[in-house]
Simulated assay, not measured.
Amino acid sequence: MTSAFARFPPRLQAAIVSNLGWSSLRPVQELAGHTLLDGNNAIVLAPTAGGKTEASIFPLLAMLMEREPEGVGLIYIAPIKALLNNQAERLGHYTEMVGLRRFLWHGDIKDQEKRAFIKEPTALLMTTPESLEVMLLSAKVPHTEIFGDMRALVIDEVHALAGTDRGAHLMSVVERLVRYTNNDVQRVGLSATVGNPVDILHWLQGTSKRPGCVVDPPKVPSKKDLRVYLRDTLGAIAQDASQITQSKKSLFFCQSRSLAEEIAERMRNRGTDVFVHHSSVSLEERTAAEDRFHRGTNASIICTSTLELGIDVGDLDLVLQANAPSTVSSFLQRLGRTGRRTGQQANTTFFCENVETVLQASYAR
């Protein structure tokens, strides 16, 4: 059987080999490549850092390269701006290496840059659900000119939206958007953790008449290191967390910003570099915390869900959790941050304040 890579245009093949140094595609990228090149809608499943982004982007770029779109041909949607910012350089590199361009549109982008995009749209648009609706509502955006040749959209971390009010709103926006084109827009959802992919695929399909497919390559079973501790005070939690995170890189997830701030304050000056990462922290501080992870060890980021959704902070040694996450999917997403290096086990250590959260953590396990 011909490989998906061999079905890519020669220019894309050459760019992958010369720019990325790849000699082959991962299993999820082969399966998704065939599925998307055949014109199917799809849910693509793979672990965190498993190559889902490339599994969707490469075949869709191949489609755009065959006939360059007039205006935006592909939209990449992420639940949060931080994930968009994190993916901007990567997707910008992928588009540039085949002679296409991308634009990032959200609330932090300057009006001058947005006006330049409206004047000369790019093949790939990266945005959030809310920013996409703002574009549709704006009289300054010529919708037919920009979206009239739209051919595909990718929703990253689709599990964070499916089945929620925000997800229903996004699907409404998408259905309004596709009215501007005569194309049956191809729809792709990416996720590391979802237990009902067929249901999510049906949700994603909307009014599209394309066939749908779940891309879920076989997974190699692996051991997990899961630990649950009961500590009756935040001081005790901070003390224990400080001890096990020394000389390591760790994320410590909390269910609220106030709890993250309090634990961070108690962990400071205990031998580990401590950073805080949540939606109310300035972009500069969040960026500094993310950069610190790429430059060494002995650092712990105390965070909320802002570091749950696919943002790349490099290889981690440990994931810690104060009490328990609200959903099993959140737990699996956070667990998947570790265990990427050869010989390393995925791990999560729960520090619980009471028996109720011990039970909740044990259920997540």
Results as ranks from 00 to 15, higher is better:
Lys219Ile: 13
Ser300Leu: 10
Thr144Ile: 04
Leu320Trp: 07
Asp317Lys: 01
Gly343Cys: 11
Val228His: 06
Phe293Arg: 03
Met63Val: 04
Asn196Phe: 00
Phe253Asp: 00
Thr207Lys: 14
Trp105Arg: 05
Pro217Ser: 15
Val173Lys: 13
Ala288Gly: 04
Ser56Gln: 08
Ser18Tyr: 13
Leu124Glu: 14
Val154Ile: 15
Ile75Gln: 05
Phe58Thr: 01
His278Thr: 03
Gln13Leu: 00
Gln246Met: 06
Asp216Trp: 07
Ser280Gln: 14
Glu290Lys: 05
Asn86Trp: 00
Ser305Gln: 11
Ile263Ala: 12
Ile263Leu: 15
Val276Arg: 01
Pro59Lys: 08
Val17Ala: 15
Arg7Ala: 14
Ala241Glu: 09
Gln246Ser: 12
Arg102Trp: 04
Thr127Cys: 08
Pro10Leu: 09
Ile75Val: 15
Gln29Lys: 13
Lys81Trp: 07
Pro47His: 11
Ala299Tyr: 01
Lys224Gln: 11
Val28Pro: 04
Leu234Ala: 08
Leu12Phe: 09
Arg67Ser: 13
Ile302His: 02
Phe252His: 09
Gly99Gln: 11
Glu30Arg: 10
Thr357Cys: 11
Glu145Arg: 10
Arg166Ile: 03
Asn347Val: 00
Leu320Met: 15
Pro221Met: 09
Arg266Gln: 14
Ser362Trp: 04
Gln243Asn: 14
Val274Gln: 09
Leu124Lys: 05
Leu84Asn: 12
Asn196Cys: 00
Gly336Cys: 08
Ser23Pro: 00
Gly21Met: 06
Thr357Lys: 07
Asn196Pro: 00
Asp111Asn: 09
Lys110Cys: 09
Gln255Asn: 15
Met135Tyr: 02
Ala289Ser: 14
Val158Pro: 05
Asp38His: 06
Leu230His: 07
Val185Ala: 12
Ser56Cys: 13
Val194Arg: 01
